[in-house]
């Protein structure tokens, strides 16, 4: 009895499939699919220099900063950046400056336009000790956070607030490649 049931079931399944199959005669296309790149793409996030939004914007301004074009950022955010910097770091009090010779207004004037300045003429680094190379790009091995901390807290000669001006993590945990794609393979 049981066997017959199973048999019946199997038969009906296949027969039904046969009987009703006339509406799924999709023909397989052999051509490459035409890719659709249409539409408008609206900005959600942007970044120039590392950690700028994190450090200098209040939580409530972070979203807006991400959708303000760099050309408009300085007008909208520089004064807020300056207030935050003075609040954060004692190094700029009383006209104090950073090692680039910038006071609070000048430094935040640079940072509030969040673009990475890149040289097409040689060395590219965030900072390597050579004044001429400063802010000429960002290489993978650059210790950008320590450089930013030094500029924020370190004063005119990088000697102020030593406890705040180095996060004491100075290199990546994997060696970078010398050739394309340069980033190390995943863990």
């Amino acid at each position: 009895m049981k066997n017959i049931k199973i048999l019946t079931l199997a038969l009906t399944v296949s027969l039904i499939a046969f009987n009703c199959s006339n509406d799924d005669d999709n023909t397989m296309s052999m051509e490459e699919p035409v890719l659709d790149f249409s539409g408008t793409y609206a900005q959600e996030d942007q970044m120039g220099r590392p950690a700028v939004n994190t450090v200098f914007n209040a939580s409530a301004d972070k979203d807006a900063f991400n959708v303000t074009t760099p050309a408009d950022q300085s007008a909208a955010f520089q004064s807020k950046f300056e207030a935050n910097l003075l609040n954060l770091s004692p190094a700029y009090a009383d006209g104090g400056m950073n090692a680039l010779g910038q006071d609070a207004a000048a430094f935040t004037g640079l940072l509030a336009t969040d673009v990475l300045n890149v040289s097409l003429d040689g060395t590219t680094t965030f900072f390597d000790g050579e004044p001429a190379n400063t802010l000429s790009g960002r290489a993978l091995a650059d210790d950008v956070i320590t450089v930013e901390l030094l500029l924020i807290f370190g004063g005119e000669d990088f000697s102020e607030n030593p406890g705040l001006s180095n996060d004491n993590v100075s290199e990546n945990d994997k060696t970078f490649l010398t050739s394309f794609p340069y980033l190390a393979s995943p863990h």
């Binding site: 019946t8 038969l11 009906t12």
Partner: peptide, 19 residues
Amino acid sequence: KTTSQLTFIVLLLLLVSCN
């Protein structure tokens, strides 16, 4: 007897299958 029953069932099911 079983076979004819089976056939009948199959036919019946076929009949309703596209209903």
